[in-house]
């Protein structure tokens, strides 16, 4: 019982670390690019959101596992 709760918390907590760092790096680079070349800002924004979607899905897998474990409690 207690271990399942711990597992659920760890599942979402650990799954958020990687995408958090990755999205931060991606956003930093994209903003840098936008500041350097404002004329391509629209294209950069689209690609940034697309990259976010891929990274975010990793966190979402962790979230779903956390929900699955939470349902077991």
């Amino acid at each position: 019982m207690g271990l399942v709760a711990l597992g659920a918390a760890l599942a979402i907590g650990l799954a958020c670390i990687g995408p958090g760092v990755g999205q931060g790096l991606a956003a930093a680079k994209a903003l840098e690019g936008m500041a350097r070349q404002p004329e391509v800002a629209g294209m950069l924004r689209t690609n940034m959101i697309l990259a976010f979607a891929f990274m975010e899905s990793l966190a979402i897998y962790g979230l779903l596992l956390a929900f699955l474990l939470y349902a077991k409690l």
Partner: peptide, 10 residues
Amino acid sequence: TLRLYGNVFG
């Protein structure tokens, strides 16, 4: 599937 479902449900 999982991206959309996880986002909205979460």
